[in-house]
Design a protein around this nucleic acid. Structure first.
Length: 295
DNA sequence: CTCCAGGGATGAT
DNA sequence: ATCATCCATGGA
């Protein structure tokens, strides 16, 4: 076990990992255990420093340094103060910005992010976490870290070579068919997720939406979390609720299309970041209301 | 346009 | 201990 300290200014690890953008990190004590690509690590925040525990690299040679991988994964290079300053100055956004200080949109591996969000449709965060764990345990590669074992997210070939039935055993339900079909498209080379990074937002979204199990919402999540398209604005039920109740409280005829058009213009060049802040703030506020309901 | 598949955590009773 | 609710895509 080795330790690495990494400068992590303006960062909140727990907020970042608990904001519904990534689903496999497990909290044990003060540490979050998970994989970054092929590497098993734990991460602990100590003020402005991220302490990272890790085993030996899986392969020697030309792999990037661990600290480089961590900096890239958690996007410590995103100019967060500047990004937050670009949000609109309205009461809703200001409350979310203040609550979510240090939340960063991370850079997830493309396939892992796409596959995970295909499994996310019509599921809540707790279920998505379970599916991710089952897929990893059954099809991923085992890694040891300290006394814990972790599993990498299975490569496309691994899932493409499985079966709808095996995937259903991982609690995917009807999503199994979509994940299998998409894995086979990627594995066959018919789809090259890395090459898609060169596409415009419009073309990337269109290509993603062609994949089985990917609609507008999942496509926007993948654009935001795996392709660093910080303008992409996924609208799920939580965000739709925020938009309707907070921005248009007495407009009865706001269609989904009009809401989408509003979001795309109102939240600006880092709309995806704004969306994540609104999403996380709304979810945490709802949770707080359960323990202390209003009146 | 409507209806529904499929499923496990979570809340309500 | 049961019962209802949450959720996004795609096909009928």
């Amino acid at each position: 076990m080795k330790l690495t300290e990494i400068d992590a200014p303006n960062f909140d690890l727990a907020m970042t990992l608990d904001s519904g953008q990534v689903f496999h990190w497990e909290k044990i004590g003060n540490r979050f255990y998970g994989t970054i690509g092929d590497r098993a690590v734990w991460v602990e925040q100590r003020g402005d420093v991220a302490l990272v525990g890790h085993g030996a690299p899986s392969q020697s040679g030309d792999s990037p340094t661990l600290s480089g991988m961590v900096v890239n994964y958690f996007a410590f290079d995103h100019p967060l103060a500047e990004i937050c300053r670009s949000f609109p100055d309205d009461p809703i956004m200001n409350a979310a910005r203040s609550y979510c200080r240090g939340l960063r949109i991370i850079r997830q591996p493309r396939w892992e992010c796409l596959a995970t969000f295909i499994t996310s449709s019509m599921k809540q965060v707790a279920h998505i976490r379970q599916i991710s764990r089952k897929l990893r345990e059954r099809f991923g590669e085992r890694r040891e870290i300290g006394n814990s074992e972790l599993f990498t997210f299975p490569a496309p070939a691994r899932l493409a070579g499985s079966s709808e039935r095996a995937l259903r055993e991982c609690a995917l339900g009807y999503r199994a068919k979509n994940l299998l079909a998409t894995a086979q498209l990627v594995e066959s080379g018919a789809v090259n997720l890395e090459k898609w990074s060169a596409l415009s937002d419009v073309d990337l979204r269109a290509n993603l939406c062609e994949l089985p199990g990917v609609g507008a919402k999942v496509a926007n999540c993948v654009m935001l979390f795996a392709y660093e398209r910080l303008r992409a604005f996924p609208i799920d039920v939580w965000i739709e609720r925020v938009l309707r109740e907070q921005y248009f409280p007495r407009k009865r005829n706001m269609t989904a299309g009009r809401l989408r058009a509003f979001a795309e213009t109102h939240f600006g060049e880092h709309g995806g970041y704004a969306q994540q802040y609104l999403f996380h703030h709304a979810r945490m506020a709802a949770r707080a209301n359960l323990s202390a309901p209003p009146r």
